[in-house]
Design a protein around this nucleic acid. Structure first.
Lengths: 243, 243
DNA sequence: CGATCAGACTGATCTGCCTCAGTATACCAT
DNA sequence: ATGGTATACTGAGGCAGATCAGTCTGATCG
């Protein structure tokens, strides 16, 4: 029940050892708790002066639409993740945020965020750290889409998701619950849904992973890691980097 | 000769109106001026406890290598850009940084950077802003590689580069000097060099842009913007966001 | 309890981009 | 001059993944 228990506080604490005062400043950041139904955008591109959110439960995805009507999902956010930092900093959102499931999140008003950064610099540094980790993830997606083939990319995606979920206690080494449809996977991986389906079947037939009925089950972790050339160091590190 | 003139200070000033004291703290960040020859990596993946740099002249690229031997260039950095922030924050580099041309850069020791963030929170916020702009750029590359075809992607790339260079006075509306080879373009855009060559020829034959002899000349800006579905708002904004 | 609909899945065909295998050209060192 | 090396450029052929056009299943609902 202490504030350290919040997944977001735990995440920042992994970067910067936060004092009691900093933790309570972080706690005061959590504004109204809001609930969003699946499917209707929380934030849409071009929207100005909206709030950021700290995700408490449920999954969301961040995506951009192109003029042709196609979309590219940039990333999925899971509980403990910070939503819309970039959009708040720039006052106008440069991407859309859509709940994948029903979502609960704490609102963080933009003004509060900036004021808190000014007063508690170590918290600002911690958020910079968290933002950098998110960027590292986007970079990894870029590399995947640019240079990995469909099978490697799919395997890599499932492994990354598993590693992230494990950090917040929502996955084990053998699998996790995953509410994504194959269409969403396709939009995230830069593939067609048809092709995702075939790649998932191959991964299943190879005895590596199954992704069925909202569950990902990893049957051969080593094989999957080898296939995807997966190196999770960009997601994790040991101990606070700043004491 | 005042410190506001430095391209990096100018860039941060676009985000946060910096006081004289903050500007001189920023100035003290600039450590030894170093020169690097083209082609030999400044930082390589896995390297620990290296410095960050503020690029004074020349171009560099940030890239990752995959096990198969292919590489993906994540971004190019031009004068005024900050190099290796993410790698410094995480103590170990997650990507390589290679000079495209001969490069001059000021070293920024990691410890100085973190100490300065602690003492001048508004500077930390400004750097968070700059980092967010970089992330927005990576996101745009991700969208491009995921959902734009080769021609659109190439056009978009040339436009983005032009817009960035214009911000630091290295481009006009009609073109800019560009030291990149077609191989580098290919590695950045997730295409083969052969295909880049054909797309450049098409863009030339369509009367949109030429990229020859180290110069990009834009002949039909509107046509190019329309083809690439280019929206430069992610690169720019008007006036400091924090007074 | 049949209708409707979203998601999973499949076969056939098409195409954008890759790979291979060169030639052409400029620049550098000797 | 002369060979060497990097980059630009081209044609032919192949393949990964897209597109099209479905079927099948399980949930939801009037």
């Amino acid at each position: 029940m202490s504030i350290q228990q919040s997944p977001f506080a735990r995440k920042l604490g992994a970067f910067v050892a936060l004092s009691g005062e900093e933790l309570s400043a972080l706690d005061r950041l959590h504004g109204r708790r809001k609930t969003f139904p699946a499917g209707r955008d929380i934030v849409h591109e071009g929207q100005v002066n909206h709030s950021a959110y700290i995700l408490a439960s449920g999954w969301v995805c961040s995506y951009k639409l192109l003029s042709g009507g196609t979309r590219q999902i940039v990333d999925f956010q899971i509980p403990g993740d910070f939503l819309g930092l970039r959009s708040v900093l720039f006052r106008t959102a440069d991407h859309n945020i859509e709940p994948v499931t029903k979502v609960e999140a704490s609102e963080v008003p933009a003004a509060d965020l900036l004021a808190t950064f000014g007063k508690t610099p170590r918290l600002a540094t911690a958020v910079l750290w968290a933002a950098s980790r998110d960027e590292a993830m986007v970079v990894e997606h870029l590399v995947g889409i640019g240079r990995r083939d469909a099978k490697e990319r799919t395997a890599h995606f499932l492994l990354e998701l598993g590693a992230r979920l494990k950090l917040v206690g929502l996955a084990t080494a053998s699998g996790y619950a995953c509410p994504l449809s194959q269409y969403m996977l396709a939009d995230a991986l830069g593939l067609s849904a048809v092709h995702i389906n075939r790649e998932l079947r191959e991964l299943r037939e190879d005895g590596l992973v199954t992704f069925q009925h909202g569950k990902v089950e990893i049957h051969d972790l080593d094989g999957l890691v080898a296939l995807a050339d997966f190196d999770k160091t960009y997601l994790d590190h040991d101990g606070p980097l700043l004491k």
